[in-house]
Nucleic acid binder design. Structure first.
Lengths: 348, 348
DNA sequence: AGCCGTACAGCAAGCGCTTTCTATGTAGAA
DNA sequence: TTCTACATAGAAAGCGCTTGCTGTACGGCT
C-alpha cells in the first residue's frame, strides 16, 4: 500500500520518532541522520499522511476562505490576495498551508455548511469575505459558529464584512456607507437631482450600507427621494440591465443611475445604450468597487475603488498571525472615489 | 476541551461505535437509539473530528480544484461550476464534501505544492483547470504526481487542459486550436491580410494551441506571416495594452488584432482608442473565451465562446463519479465563434 | 578519575474515530 | 419448548502520526 512513516524509518534505520522530527524540523537531529532520513523519504516518495498528522498534533494546516461568488472578480481578487499571503512558507519553518476557497453562492445554508466543514477539519484559520446576509436566525447561527471556531483556536477574520461582536473574529470592514455617500454627492455636485438607484439583493449588509450612503447624500442636500427611484436586483449584469429598463419606465426623466456595483453598472450602460440614450450626456452612470474592467467601459466608469487586494492581503497576514490585529479587532477600510467619463452634468 | 465521540456516547448511553454508526448511517441502528444519539449530538454541539475520521476510514471528503488565477473570471466560472456539482449532497448519503479551490498563480512550484498538499490530505478527487505549463521537467513531475494520485484512488480530472497520457487522469480538453483557427478565418473572410497577434505567456499549452490555430488559418489562406506580427505577454489587460502599442509601432498598417483572450483584447481596445484608432473601422479586434464582460465592450467583442460553466460542471460530476468518463478518458470541448461589433471589413 | 551537562535517538502512549468480530435479546420455526 | 436466525449493540484493535519521557554516549569540568 502507501508508504508510511514506519517504512521510511526502517529504510533509514532510525525510529519513526526521528523521521517525524526530521520532517517537522522542531527537534535537534544530527545532520548525518537527517540526511539519511531525507534520502529515504526521497527514495520512497513518501508523503506525509495529513489526517494522521493533524490528529496526533491536534492542529491542521488548512485555512478556509469563504466567498459569495467565486466567478465574480470582486471575490476572486480578495481571495487571491488572501491566498498569496498564506500559501507561501509562512509562520513556522516549512509550514506549508493549504489555503482553500469555498464558494457559498451567497446562500446561508452553504455558508454554514462550509463553516462546519472547516470546523470539522480543525482549520487553522478562516477568512470570510464580502457582505453578510441579514437574516436574523442565520446571523445568530453564523455568530455562534464563529465563536465556537475562535474558542477552538481557529483564527477568524472578516474581510469586507461588518464586525461580528462577541465572536472573537477580527474585522476589516469596507466603508460602503461612506463610499456610497461620496459617490452620490459627486453626482449631486454635478447638478443631478433625479437619481435612480439599482440596489443589490435585499437582506445583505453591503446592499444596505451602500444604499444608506446614497440616501444620506440625498438627504444632506435636501433632495427628497421618490420611492420609484430604487430597484433591487442581483449583483450581476443582467439584473443591472433589467433594473435600468424598469427605472426608465418608472421615470424617464432620471438623469443619473447609481448601481450597486460595477458589474451591475455595466448592465445599466448596456440598457441605456439599447434605449438610445447617451452616457453621460443623457444619463450619468456610476458603479462601485472599481473592478479591473471598469476602466475599459466606454465611457470609463465613475466608481468607488475598494482596495480589494490590499485588504485581502492584510486579512491573510492577520489570519496567519503575521500581522497584529487592529485595535479593538476592527478596522475600517475606506474606498476612493474615481471620477471618470460615465458621469457628467445633467442635460438641460 | 472539545467534545468527542465518546462524550456523545456517554450522554446518549450507548457505545462510541453506535454513535459513529448513527452519524455515518451505514449500519442498522434502532430508531429509538438513533434519536437518542442525535439528541445528544445536538445538545453537545458535537462536530466530527475530520482528521480522525479520515485517518480511521482511510478516506477524505476533500476535493481540490486547481486554478491558475482565481481573480480571473475564466477560472472563477469553471471553479464555481465544479464546486456546485460537488458541494451538495453527492455520492453517499449525507456525504458533504469540502470542495476547495487552490490558486497556483500559474507557477509550476505552487502547482506541485498544492498537488502534494492534496495528496497529503488524501483528497477524494482533484480537478485541474486551464492550460498547463510546457516546461519539460515540470510536466514530468506533474504527470508523476497525477499518476501517484490516481493510483492512490484519487480521481483526477483535467478541465480545459490537454490530456496527460498514462496518468489515469480524465481530460475534458478545450479545442483551442480549432477555435483560434475559426476566429482568424472569420477575420480573413472579412478581407484582413495583415493581422497582429497578441499571444499569451510562452510555454503554455493554451497560448501555443491558440497561436497554432491562428497560424493554421493564415497558412490555409496563403498568407505569409510576418514575425513582427506576434507579441507575447501575460493574460491581462495591461499586457494587451502594451502589446498593442508595440504591434502598432512595428507595423502601423495592421488592420486587425487578435488577442489571446478577452481580457487582453480589452487592453488592446484601450490602446487602439488611445492611439486615435476606431474599432472596427480602422482596426478589428478579436478575443477568446467570451467572458461575461466581453459583450459590454464597445463595440462588443468578437470572440470564441468556451462553455466554461458546462465544462466545469461536467468535470465536477466526473470527479464525483456521478457521470461516466468519456470513452478513452478524453473529451474535446469545442468553442463557438461569436461575431460581434469589434470585427469588420478592413479599411480601404 | 569521577561527574555532570549536552546532544541525540528511541519507547510507547495516545490523538478520536471506524470497523470487524463477538455478544445478547427476541421472534419465529420446528 | 428448544433451536435457529436476525436485528442490534458493544469491545477492542487499529489507522499513521506526534511527543513527553527515558536512555545512552561523549566531551569537558573539577
Amino acid at each position: 500500500m502507501t508508504v508510511t512513516l514506519a517504512d521510511v524509518a526502517a529504510r533509514a534505520q532510525v525510529s519513526p520518532a526521528t523521521v517525524s522530527r526530521v520532517l517537522n524540523g522542531n527537534y535537534p537531529v544530527a545532520a548525518s541522520t537527517r540526511d539519511r532520513v531525507l534520502k529515504a523519504v526521497d527514495e520512497l516518495d513518501y508523503v506525509l499522511n495529513g489526517p494522521a498528522s493533524a490528529l496526533a498534533a491536534a492542529t491542521s494546516d488548512l485555512v478556509g476562505i469563504l466567498v459569495n461568488d467565486i466567478a465574480d472578480p470582486f471575490f476572486g481578487i480578495m481571495a487571491g490576495a488572501v491566498q498569496s499571503e498564506i500559501g507561501g512558507p509562512g509562520g513556522r519553518a516549512g509550514g506549508e498551508r493549504l489555503a482553500v476557497v469555498c464558494n457559498t453562492g451567497g446562500t446561508p445554508e452553504r455558508e454554514l455548511t462550509y463553516l462546519t466543514l472547516l470546523q470539522r477539519q480543525r482549520a487553522a484559520a478562516v477568512v470570510l469575505t464580502g457582505g453578510a446576509m441579514e437574516d436574523g436566525a442565520h446571523q445568530a447561527a453564523v455568530a455562534a459558529k464563529l465563536r465556537r471556531l475562535t474558542e477552538a483556536g481557529t483564527r477568524v477574520v472578516l474581510c469586507g464584512r461588518p464586525p461580528a461582536p462577541d465572536t472573537g473574529a477580527i474585522a476589516l470592514t469596507f466603508d460602503n456607507r461612506g463610499g456610497g455617500r461620496e459617490l452620490t454627492e459627486h453626482l449631486i455636485g454635478l447638478g443631478h437631482r433625479r437619481l435612480g438607484y439599482i440596489a443589490g439583493p435585499q437582506e445583505r449588509t453591503t446592499t444596505r450600507h451602500r444604499l444608506e450612503g446614497h440616501r444620506a447624500a440625498l438627504a444632506a442636500h435636501g433632495i427628497e427621494e421618490d420611492p420609484r427611484w430604487t430597484v433591487h436586483g442581483r449583483y450581476d449584469r443582467q439584473a443591472g440591465y433589467e433594473a435600468t429598463l424598469e427605472l426608465l419606465r418608472r421615470d424617464p426623466t432620471l438623469t443619473a443611475v447609481v448601481a450597486a456595483n460595477d458589474t451591475v453598472a455595466l448592465g445599466a450602460c448596456a440598457a441605456l445604450r439599447d434605449s438610445g440614450l447617451r452616457i453621460p450626456d443623457d444619463v450619468s452612470v456610476a458603479g462601485f468597487d472599481d473592478l479591473p474592467f471598469s476602466i475599459d467601459a466606454v465611457p470609463a466608469l465613475t466608481t468607488v475603488r475598494l482596495p480589494l487586494a490590499e485588504a485581502g492581503a492584510r486579512a491573510g497576514r492577520v489570519a496567519m498571525g503575521r500581522e497584529d490585529a487592529p485595535v479593538g479587532g476592527i478596522a475600517t477600510v475606506r474606498g476612493e472615489l474615481m471620477v471618470r467619463g460615465s458621469s457628467g452634468r445633467p442635460r438641460g
